[in-house]
Nucleic acid binder design. Structure first.
Lengths: 143, 143
DNA sequence: CGCTGTTTATTAGCTAGCTAATGAATTGTC
DNA sequence: GACAATTCATTAGCTAGCTAATAAACAGCG
C-alpha cells in the first residue's frame, strides 16, 4: 500500500511498523508492549543494573527508560532497590511474579517466525547490510 | 551499545532509530521532520489527492496524517481546498512556497548515502529479505 | 422520499521515542 | 576541606505512530 517505488528507507520504516504491531498483538494478553517486554528480558539478563546501564544496553535514553520502568513496576513485575554505595542510583530487579510469567521467550519466538522462508545466507547478508547502513546513517548524522 | 547478541528485530529497530535521527538532523534547518518531508514529497507527486488517499499511499492512519498535514499547513507549505463533488473531502495541494524550497530531493539523497559501501547484489538480497519479513510479520499478526 | 449503512475527516487519548533543564549525590581538584 | 564539574534520575514538553468514537456527507435501497 505505501508510496511506491519503495526506497530502502521506506521499506525499513514500513517493516518496523508492521513488526511492532505483530509483536504487540502477541503480547498484549499479558499486558505488555514490545518495548516493555524488551526491557523486561534485558533486566532478567542483567539483574541489579542501574537505570543508566539498562538504557545503554537498550540503546534508548534514560527518560524513555524511566517511563517503561514505571509501567513494569506498576504491573508488579520489577522493583527498584536502593544502592548503599551510591544513593543516586537504583538497582533494578525482577519480582517473583515476573519469573513465573512465561514472558521471556517471546522475543526469540518472534525472531524465528520473522525469518521463516528466508535462506540462511540471505539472512547473513541482510544482517551485514543493516549493520553497514547503521554506520552510514551515523556518519550522515554528523557530516 | 544495544543489548547483544542482536536479534534481527533488534537491529532493525536500532537502525530505524538511527536513521530517523540522521534524517532529521539533515532537514531540521528547513523546519521539517522526516515524516513531514515524506508527506510533502508524496503530496507533490499526487496533487489534489484526498487525505484518505495520502494516508493509504504513506501506509499510515488518517489521524496521523491529519496531524502531519496540520503542521505543513501551519508552515504555509500546503493547503486544503474544498472538493465540490464531495463536501466531506479536501483536495491537498502544495503552495508556491513549497515549490521554491529545495525540499523534495532530500529523501533520495539519504537513500544514496545509506547504501554507501554496500554491494548492489547485497542491496537486492536485503530488499527481498525485508519484503519477506514484512509478509511474515503480517502473518504473525493474524495467526 | 426516507432510512440504513459507509466513508471522510476530526477529536481524544494511548505508547514510545527524543532533547532540555533540574536537583541531589558523587568525584575531582586545588 | 571547599568548590567545581560530573553523573543519575527525574520532570516537562516535543514528534509520531496507533485505536476508538463522532459528526457530516454521501450512496443505495425499499
Amino acid at each position: 500500500m505505501p508510496d511506491r517505488p519503495f526506497t530502502l528507507v521506506e521499506s525499513l520504516i514500513e517493516l518496523t511498523r508492521v513488526l511492532r504491531a505483530a509483536f504487540e498483538s502477541r503480547v498484549e494478553k499479558h499486558g505488555l508492549t514490545y518495548s516493555r517486554a524488551r526491557l523486561l528480558t534485558t533486566i532478567g539478563r542483567n539483574e541489579g543494573a542501574s537505570q543508566a546501564q539498562l538504557a545503554a544496553l537498550l540503546g534508548i535514553e534514560t527518560p524513555t527508560l524511566k517511563r517503561l520502568l514505571d509501567a513494569l513496576e506498576a504491573q508488579g513485575l520489577t522493583e527498584r532497590r536502593p544502592m548503599p554505595e551510591d544513593r543516586r542510583k537504583h538497582a533494578i530487579y525482577l519480582t517473583e511474579a515476573a519469573r513465573i510469567e512465561p514472558l521471556l521467550g517471546f522475543r526469540a519466538e518472534v525472531d524465528v517466525a520473522l525469518a521463516h522462508g528466508i535462506a540462511p545466507q540471505d539472512l547473513a547478508v541482510t544482517r551485514r547490510t543493516l549493520a553497514q547502513m547503521a554506520l552510514n546513517a551515523e556518519r550522515l548524522r554528523q557530516g
